[in-house]
Structures are given as structure tokens and as C-alpha cells.
Design a protein around this nucleic acid. Structure first.
Lengths: 316, 316
DNA sequence: CTGAAAGCGCTAACAC
DNA sequence: GTGTTAGCGCTTTCAG
């Protein structure tokens, strides 16, 4: 590949002149400008990006840490980021970590080694203490609330959302309401839903939170466990519409009526929930992703809350 | 940030020695090796990636061109790519183009400017003629069949899949079968389904292919158009399960029985289809993505066909 | 085993 | 307006 020197030689100018026209700096005579452009097209030249990144110490590319790459919620977040990246001409790199904290740390070093300008954490498996130090190498933005001043975040009031949903169920007369979660108490979100439950219903029966729920099959498994136990719930709040769909299908299979015998509420307003007419709480993850992107490229440390929305259909 | 020189100085060795231990080259005395490691940890040093990429002329990162970033089919492809990238320690950059051919070309130049080692095209809006020249700058792999020898591809026999599905419908006695597509005849896939239709049913009524279908709402629109027309179809083959779900819901809404009054078959085996019990043809896009990745990093120009799978549930 | 030195391709003072 | 030149941070001959 031709380089900037070849162009300079061919156009009969210096490399700095070539660089100037490449970067649209003023003060280059029309004549030389034309000569440079001609040389560029004759030699089919494209500036080498690594060289530019090296000297500029900036890549115009940001990373998105996504624990699982087969999860609708993370997909939504990613879509939000992508939506904005196209408009702002940034490049985005997807970094699946499988909740492996070392992999996550490895991604954080991509900030340090100047491979990425900013990093969006859609979730995390390290403590903030381990993460914060990397903030000096690049912008870090989280998709959950944190009051660390070094970290910008676009978040939803998860606790409020959980409380409101449980309240809604309680108002309808439910006292035995179970719920599903992805990870266990190592997850911030799980801790919040447990607290919300306790606030409204008191002690949490050990058999009510069903964890490791991601897919429709997990929903079926959860329903199986829940609907044949002693403390059979009259309502289940699922951590996603796919999981809710699994619960719905199992309930139907054993002859339960929804919502009369079992109320079901999902999360994230996904197609399967729409198709099945399941109520859901939409945390507007696409918007969260969009805001996270804006914070990232704006090197902002703001905390922006995205409103959630409860969508009632026929299943609650 | 400390650089390799700082480390060399601190460890009392030359930069080449530091480089050697960084790259695990043999022939470095234990003593110096230890000194270097110590200096690295004392100075909290991380090698600069741009500098390495510049000199190595390789980035260990590949791009995936995705026209729409809110489409389940492309998501599946991307997930496949991501699955393998984690295992092989590659970095993947997502490049949404919105079917803008200039944007697509812009992505191709990322090969030329050494920003990406390889590029996976999940779809394309440029002619092969415009794309091929970039193959000399990096590996290009497509997710559709092409016999260009410069391009590796992981593909499904779309034509075969379309023919088989139509045949299945024909065998059940359907003669009026409509279908939906995403893009129009500028799309390879649309051309193939039209040819498959013609092979089995002869002339294609102008009102049968409904285009611009991506979401559930598009499915509803398609059903609306189709089910109130003159040539009312008895079967519809949708270009995705979400679209199929929209058709299903509309059919139910106007009191049609599925499959007695209207047979519906979707594509890609997505949650909403499972939830609604819709038949589907699974093109195994995740696998396609995985193979595409392998071809990409193997710089292979092989053509690998991924088998599709027709999954019959109650809707056909 | 180890170091000096020549780049990789580009930008940005600085001088004219 | 334009060219010279000193790097950016690293790898890799080439000598020793």
C-alpha cells in the first residue's frame, strides 16, 4: 500500500502538505491541493488508521461489555448504542465476557492500551473498586446507577420498578407472588428485587426466587418448580418476556387460566410477549443504550435516569 | 502512561529485551526477565495497541456488516460470530449500514486502512464488482453463496429451502400461497423466493409478495392487505417469525382459524414463533455466523453450506 | 543472550 | 503557504 510519502513524492509536495489536505487544514494552495488529490486517486491511497490512532491517542471507537451474547435485554442495549454510533460516526466493538471477571478486566485494559476511547458496561462482574482505576485511561459508563463520581451512567430506577410492579400485584389481591432472576445475589438487580419483595410482602420464602432464568425453557423449568410446590404462587414476575412465555406455556399446559389462576408479568416488551398478550414492564433498554453512548462520547460523568413503563395486557 | 522505553530504563535493559519478554521470545535470561516483569508491574505498564497494530499490520479484529441493527436474523448471525470470537480471542466490530451502499464501501475501506483484518458481510447493497477489489486488503466472507473465488462464504441453500417449503404447502393442497419479503428485487433472497414460487406455482400474482416486512406490525399490515384482496391466499410464508406472528394475530382477530383457514410458516425459529406454535424454517443463522467467523480468521475462501431445518408445529 | 538502530505511517511544531 | 524534522510506541534485523 502506498503511504503518505509516496503521495508527497508523486504530488511533488512535502508530507506535511499531504497531511494538511488529508485533514482539511486551511492554507494549502489550490494547485497543490489538486496535485495531492490526484496523486491520492492515482495511487489509490488510504491513510493507515493505526498510525493515526497512535499519534492522536484516540480511536473513535468504543466498546460495549455484554455478559451474554444471546440475551434479548443486552441486545436491546446494544441496539441503542449502535443507533447512535451510526449517527456520530463512531465504531463499536462488542465484548462478550460471560460474566468472567478476568475477561471483564481484560476489556478494561483496552482503555489503557489505547485500543478504545470509552467503554460501556451493560453489566459487570467486578466490584467498582476494581473498575474505577481504569477510568483514568478512558471514559467508563454504566447502565446501572452508581454514585461514583468518575462513572457516568444511564440507568433505570430498578428498585422503583420492582416495587411498583409488586404493588400492582398486591393491589389485585395477590399475596403469594414468586419471581425469577438471571443471576443470584451477586447481581445488583437480584438484590434490588429481593428488597422490593420484602418491602411489600415481608419475608421471602426460599422457594420463590428462581434463578438462572434466561430463556423460554428456563421459564418452563421455573413454572414446573413453582406450580407444584407447597407455597404455590398466584402470580409470577418474570425477569424477561421469554421467561414469562415459558411460564405461560407451562401454565396453559397444566390447565391453568391466566390471569385467573396465575398472573404473569414479564419484562422488556419483547415480541414473544406481545404475541402472547403478556403484560410487561418495559425498561426501555434501547434508550438506555442510546444515552449510554452519548455519555461515552461526551466523556460525561452525568447520571441520567431513563423512565420505565408498565404495559398491561391480559396476563396480570 | 509508561512506554517500553521507561520499562527498559527501569529494568536496566534495552527496549528489545523488553519487547522479547513481552512477546515471550526465547533466549532472555531469567534475571533480566524478572527485572522486566518487575518494572512492568511497578510502572503499571500496558503495551500500546495502536503501535503494535501499526508495525504488525494486523489488528486481530474483524468487522461484521449488518444492514439493520434491530433485526432478529442479523442478531443471530452476529451471535454466531461473537460465540467464536470469544473462543479465539478476536475482537469484533459491528458495522450497521442501513443498506446504504456508500456506508458499506466505507466499511470496506476499514480493511484497506488496516483497521480490520477481515470483514463478514451478512448482507450487502453493493454489487460484487464493487466489493471484490477490497479482497486484496483483507479477508472478506459472505453469508450468502457466491462463486467469486476471492470470497469465502458460509451460506444456506435458500433456493432449496424456498422450494421445499412451497412444495410442502402445495402438497397440503394450497394453490394460493402468498409470501412476504424484506427488500424488493434488489435483494438476492427476494429474487430466489420469486423463482422458487414460479417453479412450483407458475405465474406470481402481483399482489402476493408483500415487501418491507421486518416486524410484527409489518406482518399485520401484510395480512391486512392479503386477506381482504381478491386473490385471498390460503397460506402465507413469512420472511421471519415476527412477521408470521403479526399475520397470525391479524388472522385470529378477523376470526380465521389457523391452519384450517390460513396456513402460516415463518422463518428463523424465534421465541415468538415458539410461543405461538408457528411452524418455521430455521436457517440456523447462528451456525452460519460461527462458520463465517472461522472462514474469516482462517483467511479461507471456502464455500460452506449450512443445512436448514423445517420445524413443523401447528400452523401449517 | 543482548543492544543499537532502523523503521511502521502519520501529525504537528517550527522555521522559512 | 510550505517543507523539515522530531517524534508517537513498538518490533525486528543485524551485530556482537
Amino acid at each position: 500500500m502506498a503511504n503518505i510519502q509516496d503521495i508527497a513524492k508523486r504530488a511533488g509536495v512535502s508530507v506535511s502538505t499531504v497531511s494538511r489536505v488529508l485533514n482539511q487544514h486551511p492554507y494549502v494552495s489550490e494547485r497543490k491541493q489538486a496535485a495531492v488529490h490526484q496523486a491520492i486517486s492515482e495511487l489509490d491511497y488510504t491513510p493507515n488508521r493505526s498510525a493515526i490512532d497512535l499519534i492522536r491517542k484516540e480511536t473513535r471507537s468504543i466498546g460495549v461489555i455484554i455478559p451474554y451474547n444471546n440475551n434479548q435485554a443486552f441486545d436491546q442495549l446494544l441496539h441503542g448504542v449502535l443507533n447512535r454510533s451510526v449517527e456520530r460516526d463512531y465504531t463499536v466493538t462488542v465484548l462478550p465476557t460471560k460474566y468472567d471477571s478476568n475477561k471483564e478486566l481484560h476489556c478494561l485494559t483496552m482503555l489503557k492500551n489505547k485500543q478504545l476511547d470509552a467503554l460501556i458496561l451493560t453489566s459487570r462482574s467486578n466490584n467498582w473498586n476494581a473498575i474505577i482505576p481504569y477510568a483514568k485511561y478512558g471514559t467508563i459508563v454504566a447502565c446501572e446507577f452508581t454514585d461514583h463520581p468518575e462513572i457516568g451512567c444511564a440507568y433505570i430506577d430498578r428498585y422503583g420498578s420492582f416495587v411498583e410492579t409488586f404493588q400492582l400485584l398486591k393491589d389485585k389481591g395477590h399475596t403469594r407472588v414468586a419471581f425469577t432472576t438471571a443471576r443470584g445475589e451477586e447481581s445488583n438487580s437480584t438484590q434490588l428485587i429481593i428488597r422490593a419483595y420484602q418491602q411489600l410482602f415481608g419475608d421471602l420464602p426460599a422457594e420463590y426466587p428462581i434463578r438462572d432464568c434466561y430463556s423460554m425453557d428456563d421459564g418452563i423449568r421455573a413454572a414446573q418448580q413453582l406450580l407444584h410446590g407447597d407455597e404455590k404462587p398466584t402470580a409470577i414476575y418474570a425477569n424477561g418476556d421469554e421467561v414469562a412465555a415459558g411460564i405461560y406455556r407451562y401454565a396453559k399446559r397444566i390447565g391453568l387460566r391466566v390471569p385467573e389462576d396465575l398472573a404473569i408479568i414479564g419484562q422488556e416488551n419483547q415480541p414473544v410477549g406481545i404475541g402472547l398478550g403478556l403484560s410487561t414492564v418495559d425498561h426501555q433498554l434501547v434508550k438506555v443504550g442510546e444515552h449510554a453512548f452519548d455519555l461515552a462520547i461526551g466523556k460525561s460523568k452525568d447520571k441520567v435516569e431513563i423512565p420505565y413503563q408498565i404495559i398491561l395486557r391480559q396476563s396480570d
